[in-house]
Nucleic acid binder design. Structure first.
Length: 444
RNA sequence: GGAGAGGUGGCCGAGCGGUUUAAGGCGGCUGUCUUGAAAACAGUUGGGCGAAAGCCCCGGGGGUUCGAAUCCCUCCCUCUCCGCCA
């Protein structure tokens, strides 16, 4: 949510900013509703002041007849107050609903562009591997190795689902643990494990609701929503709170699955594990002092880049232009890594700053150290990273001619020193290193 | 899920229709005193809307009343016991 005062005092600037976003906002309606709301408030508050005075007179009135006549007058007043109050409340609610539909305004320096074609490649890092054999797409490699089972995923959960198996599942688990360790040990984040099923208000806070309900999974019975990203529960951790300035900045990192209802068409765009209804992600979320938020955004980006650097994968930074900016972001830079097999750039991270947009919606504030009015914090977040696409890049980049896949050295300690993913054993009883049987009752 | 108890200011805790425009205590801040600190004493102490006057906020929402923290309805949450359960 942007500041109502800004719309009230500089409507033309707001209109101009929104015009660059390739979207629309009900600015005229907001201005009219705001004027109306303020008029109603002035009127009803004057009446309430009158009633408060009148009530004191009733209390002091000893003569029953005089008392009764005072009460009769006040009853009339009360009816007017009731009517105006209802109207004021309805107007206020309408205004709030309208404000929720206004997108965040782009930060200074965000390039103006009509849509994704206006995005700017800022820099490219690492080098794309040159193969002395034709590299394969990850689905071919993974299926042959037996680390991803597409058919059974679809059987169990419908289209766009897959099952990681054996070293495929282990690779993802190693990546998650390693990423969490990296961000907590080297970048100063505190790990949290949040709920995956949240109240609707949380999604209003982050800006997913009310506009984008069609992209979310919702349980109508309990009225709870599956999170589309850890950003939702983690950003809302401090909602309705007034933090001390000294507590800022707060850095959190969380691993969660993410659930997204997407209208997926068949074909190349959805081949493999690039896009699904469910995927895992390690997410970084920051709560910072407004003065530091630009610097914090740069640091967030560096923290995400570090993951790709350590994995030794080629990547590039993509500055998102105004026309491609999401509803909530003031500025956004994507990290894309190269998929050597399908020869395309894959978005593995979006590092966004929301300034006070989410903080306003979720009412997250801090009290300045010197005292004074609470102010909204700035929130930022970025993936660090999304798992499936990181897996794709690893599998395709580190593939060998014989169909096996090298494991990036930084991950090897997380896989018991293993350095290569070999074909998985066929379905059947797994071999166990030491054949000690489980004793003493069932393991549940 | 069932039965009972309860949700009041940063915390504890009174209040049960009108001196509450929320007592009292603790904590915090400021001052006096002190070399400094403690103690003592005095003052102060949340949020929202509004240019201001003022209005609103006692878990959320609704109602009764001239007037509600106080009465009624409803929802949510916490605690205790029971049931179920990784």
């Amino acid at each position: 949510m942007i500041d109502l005062r800004l719309i009230r005092e500089q409507p033309e600037q707001v209109r101009a900013a929104i015009a660059t976003l390739n979207t629309q906002a009900p600015i005229d309606e907001i201005l009219a509703t705001d004027t109306r709301r303020r008029a109603l408030l002035t009127e009803v508050e004057a009446l309430k002041a009158e009633r408060n005075e009148g009530s004191k007179l009733v209390k002091g009135a000893k003569d029953p007849a005089e008392r009764q006549s005072l009460i009769d007058n006040l009853r009339l007043l009360g009816e007017n107050i009731q009517r105006l109050d209802d109207e004021a409340r309805a107007t206020d609610a309408a205004l709030h609903d309208l404000l929720l539909q206004v997108p965040n305004l782009p930060a200074k320096g965000v390039p103006v562009g009509p849509d994704e074609s206006g995005n700017v490649v800022v820099s490219e890092h690492g080098t794309k591997r040159v193969f002395d054999f034709p590299p394969k797409p990850h689905w071919e490699i993974a299926e042959r190795l037996g680390i991803i089972d597409f058919d059974r995923g679809v059987k169990v959960a419908g289209s766009r689902n897959y099952v990681l198996r054996g070293d495929g599942a282990r690779l993802q688990r190693a990546l998650i643990t390693w990423m969490l360790d990296l961000h907590t040990r080297e970048h100063g984040y505190t790990e949290v494990y949040p709920p995956y099923l949240v109240l609707g208000e949380m999604l209003v806070g982050t800006g997913n609701l009310p506009k984008f309900s069609e992209t979310l999974f919702h349980d109508a019975e309990e009225d709870k929503w599956l999170i589309p990203t850890a950003e939702v529960p983690v950003t809302n951790l401090y909602r309705e709170e007034i933090l001390d300035e000294g507590q800022l900045p707060i850095y959190h990192v969380a691993y969660t699955p993410c659930f997204r209802r997407e209208q997926l068409s068949g074909g190349r765009e959805v081949r493999g594990i690039k896009r699904g209804y469910q995927f895992d992600k390690v997410e970084m979320v920051k709560f910072v002092h407004p003065d530091t938020s630009d610097e914090e955004h740069r640091r967030l980006l560096r923290d995400a880049e570090k993951v790709l650097q350590a994995l030794e994968l080629p990547y590039r930074l993509l500055q998102i232009c105004t026309g491609d900016l999401s509803f909530t972001a003031a500025n956004k830079v994507d990290l894309e890594t190269w998929a050597a097999g399908t020869e395309e750039w894959l978005e593995v991270s979006s590092c966004s700053t929301f300034r006070d947009f989410q903080a306003r919606r979720a009412n997250i504030r801090f009290r300045p150290a010197g005292g004074g009015k609470p102010q909204f914090v700035h929130t930022l977040n970025g993936s660090g990273l999304a798992l499936p696409r990181t897996m794709i890049s690893i599998i395709e980049h580190y593939q060998r001619e014989d169909g096996t896949v090298e494991i990036p050295s930084v991950l090897q300690p997380y896989l018991g020193g293993q350095s290569v993913i070999e074909p998985q054993p066929p379905i059947g009883p797994a071999r166990v290193a030491s054949q000690q049987s489980v004793v003493g009752g069932r393991v549940t």
